[in-house]
Amino acid sequence: MTFLPSSLRQPSALPGFGLALGFTLAALSIIVLIPLAALVLRAASIGPAEFLKIATDPRTIAALRLSFGTALVAALINTVFGLLIAWVLVRYRFPGRRIIDAAVDLPFALPTAVAGIAMAAIYAPNGPIGSVAQSLGFKIAYTPLGIVVALVFIGLPFVVRTVQPILEEVETDIEEASALLGASRLRTVFQVVLPHVYPALLTGFALAFARGVGEYGSVIFIAGNIPLVSEIAPLLIVIKLEEFDYGGATVIATLMLAISFAMLFLINAIQGWSRKKYGNV
């Protein structure tokens, strides 16, 4: 993280650090860390050979690949459209802009199960969009495509909300300067404006990706759940649990957890780096 000048100067000027940090750590430990430690220890207790066997089982790999693959595709789609939406919202004034701005947060607020049921109704072959897709010869619901659609819904606000404030910060002076120097508008946008946004865009991408990997409620209704084809990793965890296979469930959960943690650490590192590079935005 950035070093705030004031607190660097006087590291002990404000009181309550011990109390605040202590309370935070206590809550964090009880709610997050101890339960997660229980998970990891349980997975570790089954031994490395068994761990490896479960981790490399074709179904585990297929499920992880599907979860990470669809989350990746969805996050990429969200990166493109999220940037575009953020751009439109920040730069243009048009009727209904405020409504659209507010609506971007909908996936944050709408329960995933509700979204899942609604999307299954829309994209099933007898739904309004699903029937159109059907007549064009492809299927959305109950295929990996359906998972991608659900994850695009879940992840969109992460990209928009990360990029939007940064885009607002970009001074138009530099664009004027760039235009004055003869750069085309396209060139100005891609070479002058967007470089400021890239770190935030990357962060938004990573957040949407991380969220998509673990998503369960909305995906389960639209996925089809066929092993090796449309069975996501969280579902595999649930299936293992219901077979009384706690070892298997915890191994897959631990794998997902490790990847999530690594990704988040990367996100925060990128944020720290972008703060240093582009100032405290």
């Binding site: 109950y142 389960i220 089809g224 759940n225 066929i226 069975e231 579902l235 649930v238 299936i239 219901e242």
Partner: peptide, 12 residues
């Protein structure tokens, strides 16, 4: 195996 190949959705 042929039978389950004809199953497009495997609900829980």
């Amino acid at each position: 195996a042929d039978l389950y190949r004809n199953v497009p959705v495997l609900d829980t």
